[in-house]
Design a protein around this nucleic acid. Sequence first.
RNA 1: GGAAGGGUGGCUGAGUGGUUAAAGGCACCUGACUCGAAAUCAGGAGUAGGGGCAACCCUACCGUGGGUUCAAAUCCCACCCCUUCCGCCA
Length: 433
Amino acid sequence: MLDIKLIREKTDFVRARLALRGAGDEKLIEQILQADEQRRTILTEAESLKSQRNRVSKEIGALMGQKKNEEAEAKKKETRDLGDKIAGLDKLVNKADAERDALMLRLPNLPHESVPPGKTAEDNPEVRVHGEKINFSFKPKSHVELCDSLKLVDFARAAKLSGSGFLLYTNWGARLERALIQFLLDLHITEHGYTEVSPPLMVGEQCLVGVGQFPKFKDQYYGVAEGDDAKNLGKLYLIPTAETPVANIHREEILAEKQLPIRYCAYTPCFRGEAGAAGVGTRGMIRVHQFDKVELIKIVKPENGYDELEKMVLNAEKVLQLLGLHYRVIMLCTGDMGFGSAKTYDIEVWAPGQGSYLEVSSCSNCEDFQSRRMNLRFKAESGENKFPHILNGSGTALARLFVALIETHQQADGSVNIPAPLQPYLKTNCISI
RNA sequence: GGAAGGGUGGCUGAGUGGUUAAAGGCACCUGACUCGAAAUCAGGAGUAGGGGCAACCCUACCGUGGGUUCAAAUCCCACCCCUUCCGCCA
């Protein structure tokens, strides 16, 4: 959520930054200002009436204390209809309030000044590249072929269980997935200074609102129902990413300045409806309804937000470096960024069997956009309450990492070599038939 | 799911209709005393919204939402959460 004061005072600036996203959100500004103006007008009126009522009520109390009942009754009569007027105005204030907030919650974050203007993924500049595309002396297989031949994933039976877009990892596939999770967690905890947390996989609506997934993208997520009572449907949602519960851990709190920075790392499965997305239903692991991810979350002082973002990207890159994978880092242009982000880097890993790069990490600084929504603050040394920057980054997504790993390290004989840093976790240096 | 108890400020804990933003204690900040500290004494300090150039003023907030009343932390209703016991259960 943007600061209403910023919208009021620097309206043109806000409009211009929003326009850079190319989604037409700046058109909401006029309505927001209107609702805000209306709210304040009514509020002032209601509050002055309340002030009057409070004053008279105290007088009545004092008169009754002195047994001057007649005078008290007279005063009561005087203020009787004040209450009705106040109730009426309060309703209007609430309405204007709700109207303003509903609009505010649909407004995306402003892009940071360092983000290049652009419309689509075509306009995303490449920031840096690590390694290069691997040359095979044989025709590399796709991950689907490798999973079949090495029996790492049973696509057909996964579909039998849950429909398309789900994976059944088997034997070495399951072990590789588990080894990767453990490897990633250990790396971030011991080398990068994150604290591991393991959050609930179902959360209430307020958490989705807090990080900006609701209300605008409600159709993307799985709601669950307890028992067979339809009334319970939608009280809880399956998390689309660990960001949802973890970024909300301190919602509505006022942290001490010395508690910052907070750095959390969490492994969770992620559940996504992927409504309307191309690719679900095709065979493979690139886009699925459920995948594993190790997520990084930081809550930091505003002045450190962008330094911490750079570090976070390096933390995610380290994963790919250690696994011997070729990747590139790109910066998302204004038109391609997520709803809550002010600046985002994506990391794309090379998958030779696909002949394409796969997004395995997206690291964003949402600045105070989320902390405002969840009313998370910290008390600065000055005594002032401030909104911290909240950052999130994948460190990394697993299914696609799995794909890149087996496609990159496949051998002519159909086996897959395991990179040295992963061997202690998988307890083998090669997966073969 | 059943029963009982409970949700008040950073923490603890009083408060059952009228100067209660809310006693007392702890913690915190400032000052005095001290070489310094402790102890003691004096004072300060919640969050949010609105108004004002400002000193400042107003409003709301005692789990949440309604209701009764001139007036609600206090009375009524619904809901949520926590604790303990029982049941069920990985």
